[in-house]
Design a protein around this nucleic acid. Structure first.
Length: 670
DNA sequence: CATGCTCCGCTTTAGACAGCATGTC
DNA sequence: CTAAAGCGGAGCATG
């Protein structure tokens, strides 16, 4: 034990960590569910278990599962820095990134549930894995992605593996831990005190009794050298809130200069800058930023870094920052307690409110953190009180999600995890779903239908996967999407192909069709002979946007035409790229030909530019410029350095030549 | 007559995981 | 079941 603590550089144990040791976290057979506040040292407890396996037992491997790719990258950097000097090899494996070498050469793999599931399907060696940490395990209650995690955990439970679940505070931790055969560790200890309060009509009422008048709940904190995160219910509200604040008079000259630099950086991400870039840059200049799904990863990275370095004082965010990411601040404000959902306007779940405010209070920087809920009326006030004082809602299994169920059942059969109906039934009996609901009639009915569906599609036969089904499973597609692809495998042209991709489940949610666009879109749709009359306009609109993208329509024009933000465009393109690859692979099995749009989607360009696009620092815009000037490939560039420099400018050309291994001006291959 | 302002009613509303081989029994 | 900001058109006042 001392060795582990020394390894982790821990001098003094915090109360929850002490408790974990007492409960036997170092007993390699014992599963754990750890539910303690954010910042109280959950990760360190998981690390104690990890190191216990990795360090003292050479050859054993650990897996660390997180719900977001961004979190995976963050954890990867953190662990790599900490562990590699001790010889623990850390790997990152997420959808768009895999460690170059074989994962078997690593001791600790940071990944997402979906990717781990996929690795499993592709036959990763599991026998060496002896400990799995599941960060944010309450995600099991998420209606979209919870089921995947649940199936994964059900399988892990049957392996000889220590499972460490890390969870936010939930309403039914006993239920979850019992299902996991896990020791339950509950604790409320926090490294920094959290003061909770309700803001109403110019007054903050703290739960500890203090009542104080407050003109401006944001500036007050900034004046006192603190930072603030404001959670807003919509993207627009987050932006407007950010744009309407001005901290200029509270900023030092040096800070203003740095903010100006960041502003410029944001504007240089796109050429020409998009509307969103301009908005963001203009509020960053005043010390504030907004943060939501419309931002690209690059945008987000810049904002998060500046906030961590305390250059930015305030972030107005949607739920993008609600989970996971380590961005502490002095005060968290929940600006509205209600939010529009599929079921109309509803109160934000208590669990989410508590998770949001839990990040308040930076250890070493703040004496205490503050979670402030804004109440508009009496009902809000009562709800706020409830959020701050009562325990969160219980979480429920979401295994019955159709898409998850289809994908997972095919996966279980494809990997021969279940060999017949009996196996499958036994497996279902071991799930959290069965544990919670007891009555399995409904899900059994669903499963029966899915098995029939998979047989109809020729993905399985007598509980044996067919080569086609195996492919679908390995591609990690929803079988229904695969069916849609197969039914439409006679692809007419590029737009038609993109349209088929947009019919797939993975593409959801599609671009919204606004009232005003309906007529025009419908008319255009009918003009294409390949489509039949009752096609879906949202699918068509999304396909059209992707079509514009691969045909080099300028990005800012796409954003305007389709009323989307850069982050959304990027995300849709990313999904389309994966589906396009999948469609190609499925076509191969069926001996059919389909256009290959993968690279065109990746770069957003026509076929003829692909040669140039392989070169670093050349994107769709520069490639087009070169191509128009007659420079069409690598050789042309090397032969015409002056021309290239003329078109792209001295600086960038230099970088490109370096990239090509040619000295600028000397035109010599090294 | 062009421009500007107010009012009213209609429209809109969060987030983000997954592929990438092949050959042999 | 439950809201509210923002946009745009209509209608009116003003120069």
């Amino acid at each position: 034990m001392d060795e582990i603590l020394k390894f982790l550089g821990i001098k003094e144990l915090r109360p929850p960590q002490k408790k974990a040791l007492e409960l036997g976290i170092l007993d390699k057979k014992k599963n754990f569910l750890i539910s303690i506040p954010t910042g109280a040292g959950k990760t360190v407890i998981a690390e104690m278990a990890l190191i216990n396996h990795l360090l003292l037992d050479k050859g054993k491997k650990g897996v660390y599962i997180v719900p977001l790719k961004a979190l995976a990258s963050e954890k990867y950097e953190e662990f790599k820095k900490k562990y590699e000097k001790f010889g623990v090899r850390v790997a990152l494996s997420i959808g768009d990134y895999d460690e170059d070498e074989d994962l078997e050469n690593y001791d600790l793999i940071i990944t997402t549930a979906e990717k781990f599931d996929s690795l499993w399907r592709h036959g990763i060696k599991l026998s060496d894995i002896s400990v799995v940490v599941v960060d944010e395990i309450h995600v099991i209650g998420d209606s979209e992605r919870g089921g995947t995690l649940e199936v994964l955990l059900t399988k892990l439970k049957e392996l000889d593996v220590q499972i460490i679940g890390l969870s936010a505070t939930i309403g039914n931790p006993e239920e979850l831990s019992e299902w996991l055969n896990a020791e339950l560790l509950l604790d409320n200890w926090r490294p920094v005190e959290l003061r909770k309060g309700i803001y109403r009509e110019g007054v903050i009422e703290y739960l500890d009794g203090e009542v104080k008048e407050c003109q401006d709940i944001v500036k007050e904190v900034v004046k006192d050298n603190g930072s603030v995160i404001i959670f807003c219910p919509t993207k627009k509200k987050a932006e407007n809130r950010a744009l309407s604040l001005d901290l200029s008079d509270l900023l030092k000259k040096s800070e203003k200069r740095k903010l100006e630099e960041i502003s410029e950086e944001l504007l240089s991400l796109f050429d020409p800058p998009t509307e969103l870039c301009k908005k963001l840059a203009s509020c960053v200049r005043k010390g504030i930023a907004f943060h939501h799904s419309g931002l690209t990863y690059e945008h987000r990275k810049i904002i998060e870094k500046a906030f961590r370095e305390r250059i930015l004082k305030v972030i107005c965010s949607t739920t993008t920052l609600a989970f996971g990411l380590n961005l502490p601040c002095r005060r968290v404000i929940i600006s509205e307690l209600k939010r529009y959902t599929r079921r109309g306007l509803t109160y934000i779940p208590i669990m989410e409110v508590q998770q949001c405010i839990g990040r308040a209070g930076r250890p070493g920087l703040d004496e205490y953190g503050e979670g402030i809920l804004v109440a508009k009326d009496e009902r809000d006030y009562l709800r706020a009180l409830q959020c701050l004082t009562q325990k969160p809602e219980p979480i429920y299994s979401k295994l019955s999600n159709d898409s998850v169920l289809r994908t997972q059942i095919l996966g279980l059969i494809a990997t021969r995890y279940v060999l017949d109906e009996y196996d499958l039934e036994e497996f279902i009996k071991n799930t959290f779903y069965a544990y919670q609901y007891k009555n399995l009639d409904e899900i059994k009915k669903k499963i029966k239908e899915i098995i029939e569906f998979l047989e109809d599609c020729n993905f399985i036969k007598n509980f044996e996967v067919t080569p086609l089904g195996k492919k679908v499973s390995n591609l990690y597609l929803d079988p229904l999407s695969a069916k849609i692809m197969i039914d439409n495998i006679e692809v007419k042209d590029d737009l038609h192909l993109l349209y088929i991709l947009c019919k797939c489940i993975e593409m959801k949610p599609l671009l919204r069709v606004y009232r005003k666009e309906e007529e025009e879109l419908a008319e255009e749709l009918l003009n294409y002979e390949i489509f039949i009359s009752y096609e879906n306009l949202e699918e068509f609109k999304t396909a059209k946007m992707l079509y514009d993208w691969i045909n080099e329509v300028p990005e800012d024009e796409i954003l305007k035409t389709y009323k989307v933000e850069p982050g959304i465009l990027r995300y849709k393109v990313e999904v389309a790229k994966w589906l396009s690859y999948s469609l190609k692979e499925i076509a191969k099995i069926l001996n059919k030909e389909v256009p290959n749009l993968e690279l065109r989607l990746e770069y957003g360009a026509k076929e003829e530019l692909l040669e140039l696009l392989k070169i670093k620092y050349i994107g769709r815009v520069r490639a087009r410029k070169l191509y128009s000037a007659g420079i069409r490939n690598r050789e042309d560039i090397i032969k015409n350095p002056k021309k290239v420099a003329n078109i792209l400018g001295e600086k960038i050309s230099k970088k490109i030549f370096e990239e090509l291994g040619v000295r600028y001006g000397q035109q010599r291959l090294i």
